[in-house]
Write a protein that binds this DNA or RNA. Sequence first.
DNA 1: GCTAATTTCGGAAACGTTTCCGAAAAATAA
DNA 2: TTATTTTTCGGAAACGTTTCCGAAATTAGC
Lengths: 338, 338
Amino acid sequence: MKHITIKDVAKELNLAVSTISRAFNDKYDIKPETRELILKTAEEMGYRPNPIARKLIQQRSFNVGIVVPEFVNSFFPEVLLGAQEVLHEKGYQVLIMQSNESEETELKNVETLVDNMVDGLLVSLTSENNNNSFYEKLLKRNMPIVFFNRVAENLNTSKVVFDDYKWAFFATEHLIVQGYTDIAHIAGPKNLLLSKERSRGFNDAHRKYKLTPGHIISCGFSMREGEELAQQMVEEDTVPRAIFAASDQSAIGFMKTLKNNGYKIPEDVAIVGFSESKLAEHVCPSLTSVKQPTYEIGKAAAELLVEQINNKGIFVPQSIVLNGKLNIRESSVQITNG
Amino acid sequence: MKHITIKDVAKELNLAVSTISRAFNDKYDIKPETRELILKTAEEMGYRPNPIARKLIQQRSFNVGIVVPEFVNSFFPEVLLGAQEVLHEKGYQVLIMQSNESEETELKNVETLVDNMVDGLLVSLTSENNNNSFYEKLLKRNMPIVFFNRVAENLNTSKVVFDDYKWAFFATEHLIVQGYTDIAHIAGPKNLLLSKERSRGFNDAHRKYKLTPGHIISCGFSMREGEELAQQMVEEDTVPRAIFAASDQSAIGFMKTLKNNGYKIPEDVAIVGFSESKLAEHVCPSLTSVKQPTYEIGKAAAELLVEQINNKGIFVPQSIVLNGKLNIRESSVQITNG
DNA sequence: GCTAATTTCGGAAACGTTTCCGAAAAATAA
DNA sequence: TTATTTTTCGGAAACGTTTCCGAAATTAGC
């Protein structure tokens, strides 16, 4: 690929490169007519300023990087949509990388993005995450970073999270109110803050009703892991009367295996999930789930980031906590009650 | 963000920058000991060669750009996973952009990527696509591009596609064989080649059994559009006995609206989808669908691309056609037959 | 020990921009 | 008109690399 450069335009018009540059950068020490002329012939020649060279000289790129742990489920893509909208609006291009739930590739992704001089970073941690010294270093060097959804507790920067505690509480309460007392919690990966928060909500809901909380079983977010857990419980005959799962995926996997083993949902066991995946509404029976404001998470995170970028790293870290909604569906409604 | 540069390392060791550069580029005109020394102190100082400067001088980036029309459904993310695997293996970093099914942002995305000096492009067109002169120009300038899944007929470059014709044929045949004769086809967006191929398969399957093909109704890929279509058919009382939809999303939307209007699936109308979304297996009733080899599509496309990159644009365009599988489920099995 | 061949390194140009400084040109003031 | 201010533009340095060319240092050949 041969790129047309500013020099080509300068030669064509018999002007200095600095003049061409001025025409493109809207500086006011250029005569309007020459500016028009330059812009016109540049357009004709197919010239576009090379952002690589621009980055090098300006030390800023108007690119921001986003790192997500995965994107085969619709959750993160939806967040990305929100982030992308505000970032495009403010003139940033968005570079997306995904870590495949591996901390190692997560770090590589961040390094690539930093090396490519992104102006800021939006990141959601992998479930493997347990060492944040890398992020600490970046933050010390004034790299604007905001974490979203899967955040690290001890990092001193802006974050936008969902109110996991509250909605785990409500989801559990929904089961309790319907008369269930034997409720187990399929928790998320241990090192994630959101797993802890959801477990805490689960426990506190029990406390409110003076019940002793049921088992909390740590589990991954995937459907497969939900299936395996269910299989194990079926074999050990320890299937509880109700389940509150930390993800829709594990909830659905769990439900599927239960159905295959002759259990009826919700008659035999009631299930509620978390995160409102696309599946929840369409699964049989449809799955009660907590809906997170995905799009808004992305928007909020992006807005905090541009603020950080504009303030060149001097800022007060903010934490935004967003609200959700419990969508009650078939999988958790007590039918055989009276 | 202050970056540590090659000059800093040179100063620290009292060497010329060119020497430092040699140490990092494995050239053989450097003494092994000094090389070791340089690498060690560079590591200590936290120096990493700036890829921006590198791109500028080398005119290549070891980045490839991928642009997809959307990624809230799992199809494209899965393709991306495959592409990413082979590209990482070959030393490329992957920059992902999504076009939101808008041709305008698709073009902007491609421009951004080109401006950022990606070495090659993997693209899947938006459903709006109807003008490929931009891609033609790029190809003339020797930009390596391979299209996948949603390709343009008239562009002279490598493509990897699914055998849409064949599997649309099989899917339709599956319905015919079970005794259905009144089959409608919910087709995809008109300007997409894959829509035409799927319609052609639909027609030819009818021909094989000497049946006159049913209605072909053009429709988007989304669930909402499937719902709207169904609603309209219900009101006009033109609901056929069987449906072959060009996407799972539209199939599921269609099915949902039908169910809400008292139709029974598959007793009243049989449905088969296309693309094997995550939903197909979990929906009620579960949806018969054609499974595409998403991961393999990504891998094949990526391999063709690196080949093009290595051959610097001098290559013979290849078209790879991949095979699939029909997953037969509840939504299409004729029960009330005897 | 001397020349010749080889290895190892430094200097400088280049990539495509932006930006600073100063000079030329134009506009204004006297 | 001349002097002064303002506008408009050109030249050159800078960003952080790589790469070419040549010079110094080392090794080999005799």
